[in-house]
Nucleic acid binder design. Structure first.
Length: 281
DNA sequence: CTGTGGTCCTGTATGC
DNA sequence: TGCATACAGGACCACA
């Protein structure tokens, strides 16, 4: 469920307390989240013990935790993953899957209801894990080439929403911020990306970055307990959403009733007034 | 290569 | 009170 603003909120929360800490013990409570580790769960625990964290990093929705030895722990939260930092011995949250005891009497805990997320040790992955290298830079990345990204979007003939959700084209955008950006830019989700002008794509990406910036300032979007910060607190941005989750409400811009439509196997929220389908050419 | 749809999971809400 | 079904902030993989 977490998209860029939520993952970045978590990264910042972890950076404060994880940087410089050493792992003194690992417990794998459920094997599924470490399924990507070839050596199995026991080896995962053994090989991570004794390592010292440097500053956590992020690209799009991927997180990784570089160690001083040059390796990294790669994490993806998928739909329901969370990280929590708690005093050692504090009660475990429901669905806690892996715990890392730290040398300051705290624990880093990976919690994941649906277990679609995962943790992997990436050998030599401190700077950029190979598991992340296929992911495009995100809209917050200072090294993002915006012109090239605009061109890459317009090279696609798929519906624009599919293209901005494609993490190989531009990363970090998920279902909420895709719908919000499309609403802000007044673009219908089904419009072929190739049919949009360069200026339209530029505007759309600008709005995507803008809405994610505002969300980050609010600590991200929480609909329920499935997204919380590392200390268990919720984000406040859901109240600022213009269309996502607002089926039946009036459009804040024109008053037309917000619609929910099925697209690509998931829900899309849009204003039929502000975002009419593109005219067939 | 590009686009699409199924699949991995658990839990909750809703309808009969 | 069951029980079935739909749906959920994501990404990978097989297939046309």
């Amino acid at each position: 469920m977490p998209e860029l603003p939520e993952v970045e909120t978590i990264r910042r929360g972890l950076a404060e307390f994880l940087t410089g800490r050493t792992v003194v013990g690992v417990q794998v409570l459920h094997p599924r989240p470490v399924r990507g580790h070839v050596g199995g769960e026991d080896d995962f625990a053994v090989t991570l013990t004794g390592r010292t964290f440097t500053t956590p990093a992020r690209r799009g929705k991927y997180l990784w935790f570089p160690f001083v030895d040059g390796d990294a722990l790669v994490a993806h939260l998928r739909m329901s993953g969370q990280f929590r930092l708690d005093p050692a011995g504090a009660p475990l949250a429901r669905h806690t899957r892996v715990t890392f005891a730290l040398d300051d009497a705290r624990e880093l805990r990976f919690v994941d209801q649906r277990m679609l997320g995962g943790l992997t040790l990436s050998a030599g992955g401190a700077a950029l894990p190979s598991e992340v290298s296929h992911i495009a830079r995100d809209l917050f990345d200072p090294e993002l080439d915006l012109d090239a990204t605009v061109a890459a979007v317009r090279r696609r003939t798929a519906p624009i929403k599919s293209v901005i959700l494609n993490q190989r084209v531009v990363s970090g955008i998920g279902n909420i911020y895709a719908d919000e950006a499309l609403w802000l830019a007044r673009v219908h989700y089904g419009t072929s990306a190739a049919a949009l002008s360069e200026q339209s794509v530029r505007r759309l990406l600008h709005q995507a970055r803008a809405v994610m910036t505002r969300s980050l300032a609010a600590g991200g979007t929480s609909f329920d307990a499935l997204y919380v910060n590392v200390n268990g607190s919720s984000g406040y941005f859901s109240r600022s959403l213009n269309c996502y989750g607002r089926e039946g409400d009036p459009c804040p811009r024109c008053g037309t009733t917000i619609a929910r439509e099925r697209f690509g196997g998931r829900s899309s929220y849009l204003c039929p007034g502000c975002q009419p389908p593109a005219r067939l050419a």
